[in-house]
Protein backbone atom coordinates (compact mmCIF):
# COMPACT_ATOMS: atom_id res chain seq x y z
CA UNK A 1 0.00 0.00 0.00
CA UNK A 2 1.34 3.45 -0.86
CA UNK A 3 0.71 6.53 1.21
CA UNK A 4 -0.43 8.43 -1.88
CA UNK A 5 -3.50 6.26 -2.44
CA UNK A 6 -4.90 7.19 0.96
CA UNK A 7 -4.14 10.83 0.38
CA UNK A 8 -5.89 10.78 -3.00
CA UNK A 9 -8.94 9.12 -1.47
CA UNK A 10 -8.95 11.72 1.27
CA UNK A 11 -8.59 14.51 -1.30
CA UNK A 12 -11.58 13.11 -3.21
CA UNK A 13 -13.75 13.01 -0.10
CA UNK A 14 -12.63 16.49 0.95
CA UNK A 15 -13.41 17.99 -2.48
CA UNK A 16 -16.81 16.34 -2.60
CA UNK A 17 -17.44 17.76 0.86
CA UNK A 18 -16.48 21.24 -0.35
CA UNK A 19 -18.85 20.89 -3.26
CA UNK A 20 -21.62 19.94 -0.88
CA UNK A 21 -20.90 22.84 1.44
CA UNK A 22 -20.92 25.28 -1.44
CA UNK A 23 -23.95 24.00 -3.25
CA UNK A 24 -26.48 22.77 -0.71
CA UNK A 25 -29.21 25.20 0.30
CA UNK A 26 -30.31 23.39 3.40
CA UNK A 27 -28.24 23.95 6.52
CA UNK A 28 -28.60 20.32 7.66
CA UNK A 29 -27.21 19.12 4.36
CA UNK A 30 -24.33 21.59 4.63
CA UNK A 31 -23.51 20.08 8.00
CA UNK A 32 -23.60 16.60 6.44
CA UNK A 33 -21.06 17.76 3.87
CA UNK A 34 -18.86 19.17 6.61
CA UNK A 35 -18.87 15.70 8.18
CA UNK A 36 -17.54 14.32 4.90
CA UNK A 37 -14.66 16.79 5.01
CA UNK A 38 -13.88 15.83 8.59
CA UNK A 39 -13.86 12.15 7.65
CA UNK A 40 -11.34 12.93 4.90
CA UNK A 41 -9.09 14.65 7.43
CA UNK A 42 -9.36 11.66 9.74
CA UNK A 43 -8.15 9.35 7.00
CA UNK A 44 -5.16 11.65 6.46
CA UNK A 45 -4.27 11.61 10.14
CA UNK A 46 -4.43 7.86 10.53
CA UNK A 47 -2.56 7.24 7.26
CA UNK A 48 0.22 9.65 8.19
CA UNK A 49 0.39 8.10 11.64
CA UNK A 50 1.18 4.77 9.96
CA UNK A 51 3.53 6.32 7.43
CA UNK A 52 5.74 7.93 10.04
CA UNK A 53 5.60 4.72 12.11
CA UNK A 54 4.62 6.64 15.21
CA UNK A 55 4.69 3.97 17.93
CA UNK A 56 2.74 6.25 20.26
CA UNK A 57 -0.17 6.40 17.78
CA UNK A 58 -0.38 10.20 17.76
CA UNK A 59 -2.29 10.24 14.48
CA UNK A 60 -4.97 7.97 15.83
CA UNK A 61 -5.30 10.02 19.00
CA UNK A 62 -5.86 13.11 16.90
CA UNK A 63 -8.47 11.30 14.82
CA UNK A 64 -10.23 10.57 18.10
CA UNK A 65 -10.05 14.22 19.08
CA UNK A 66 -11.52 15.19 15.73
CA UNK A 67 -14.39 12.76 16.18
CA UNK A 68 -15.08 14.29 19.58
CA UNK A 69 -14.97 17.85 18.30
CA UNK A 70 -17.14 16.86 15.33
CA UNK A 71 -19.72 15.54 17.74
CA UNK A 72 -19.72 18.84 19.59
CA UNK A 73 -19.89 20.73 16.31
CA UNK A 74 -22.90 18.78 15.10
CA UNK A 75 -24.67 19.31 18.40
CA UNK A 76 -24.17 23.06 18.37
CA UNK A 77 -24.68 23.31 14.62
CA UNK A 78 -28.01 21.58 14.72
CA UNK A 79 -29.08 23.67 17.70
CA UNK A 80 -28.32 26.83 15.72
CA UNK A 81 -30.15 25.48 12.67
CA UNK A 82 -33.08 24.70 14.89
CA UNK A 83 -33.06 28.22 16.28
CA UNK A 84 -32.88 29.76 12.81
CA UNK A 85 -35.71 27.51 11.67
CA UNK A 86 -37.78 28.54 14.66
CA UNK A 87 -37.23 32.25 13.93
CA UNK A 88 -37.51 32.24 10.17
CA UNK A 89 -39.52 29.11 9.40
CA UNK A 90 -36.79 28.00 7.00
CA UNK A 91 -33.42 26.33 7.31
CA UNK A 92 -32.18 27.47 3.90
CA UNK A 93 -28.96 29.35 4.31
CA UNK A 94 -29.25 31.27 1.05
CA UNK A 95 -32.21 33.04 2.54
CA UNK A 96 -30.06 34.26 5.44
CA UNK A 97 -28.68 37.32 3.70
CA UNK A 98 -29.38 39.91 6.36
CA UNK A 99 -25.71 40.93 6.40
CA UNK A 100 -25.60 42.14 2.81
CA UNK A 101 -24.48 45.63 1.89
Amino acid sequence: MTIAQFLVLSAALFSIGIYGVLVRRNAVLVLLSVELMLAAVNINFVAFGRYFADSAAGGQVFALFIITVAAAEVGIGLAIVLLIFRNRASANIDELDVLKW
Binding site: T2, I3, A4, F6, L7, V8, S10, Y51
Partner: peptide, 18 residues
Protein backbone atom coordinates in the same frame (compact mmCIF):
# COMPACT_ATOMS: atom_id res chain seq x y z
CA UNK B 1 -9.12 21.54 -4.78
CA UNK B 2 -9.03 17.88 -5.66
CA UNK B 3 -6.46 18.51 -8.36
CA UNK B 4 -4.20 20.46 -6.03
CA UNK B 5 -4.49 18.04 -3.10
CA UNK B 6 -4.19 14.85 -5.07
CA UNK B 7 -1.54 16.30 -7.36
CA UNK B 8 0.62 17.43 -4.45
CA UNK B 9 0.16 14.08 -2.67
CA UNK B 10 1.36 12.17 -5.72
CA UNK B 11 4.10 14.68 -6.47
CA UNK B 12 5.54 14.64 -2.97
CA UNK B 13 5.10 11.00 -1.96
CA UNK B 14 5.07 9.14 -5.28
CA UNK B 15 5.21 5.42 -4.70
CA UNK B 16 6.43 5.46 -1.12
CA UNK B 17 5.08 2.42 0.65
CA UNK B 18 3.52 2.28 4.06
Amino acid sequence: TFAVLAGSAVAFFGDEEI
